[in-house]
């Protein structure tokens, strides 16, 4: 499988309440082994998936949010967050986890994985993809 395609995982739902977010993350982790050009998009209630200090002790579900911080180790380094979705929910980048990766092409410098993009920019980025998996 030498062909490299642009895969984008589109996350639109809140982290708990349904299983979509957790099972989306499972696909991302497996998919990372396939050496494709991978990116993640978080929009609508999906932006809540990246919020920091999640505490699920009251609902009896596993808090899987620490896994997002490991994505950089899986070479998943492009995480698009839609600006309007954050603003509509009264959130800002400060409310999200600080996700980073080490850039092997830049002497392993630590860089931010999250890229804040407008709805319009995200639409354009989606248009460039070969495969869109929406959750």
């Amino acid at each position: 499988m030498s062909e490299i395609k642009k895969f984008m995982y589109v996350n639109r739902k809140a982290p708990y309440g349904t299983i979509y977010a957790l099972e989306s993350l499972e696909v991302v982790l497996i998919g990372a082994a396939f050496d494709q050009d991978v990116s993640l998009a978080f929009l609508d209630d999906g932006v809540y998936q990246l919020t920091k200090d999640q505490d699920t002790s009251g609902i009896g579900m596993k808090n899987f949010s620490p896994t997002y911080a490991a994505l950089g180790d899986y070479d998943v380094t492009k995480i698009y967050v839609e600006k309007e979705s954050l603003e509509e929910r009264g959130l800002s980048l400060d409310d999200l986890q600080h996700l980073t990766y080490e850039d092997e092409d830049d002497d392993w410098a630590e860089k931010d994985s999250i890229r804040l993009v407008s709805r319009e920019e995200l639409a354009r980025i989606m248009d460039e993809q070969d495969v869109l998996l929406s959750f």
Binding site: M1, E3, K5, F7, E26, V27, I30, G31, A33, F34, Q36, D130, V131, L132, L133, S134
Partner: peptide
């Protein structure tokens, strides 16, 4: 496994959800 989904995304012209 999930690898079958990724493989389908790579090999097929289109993946429809």
């Amino acid at each position: 496994g999930l690898g079958q989904l990724i493989e389908a995304g790579i090999k097929a012209d289109r993946l429809v959800v």
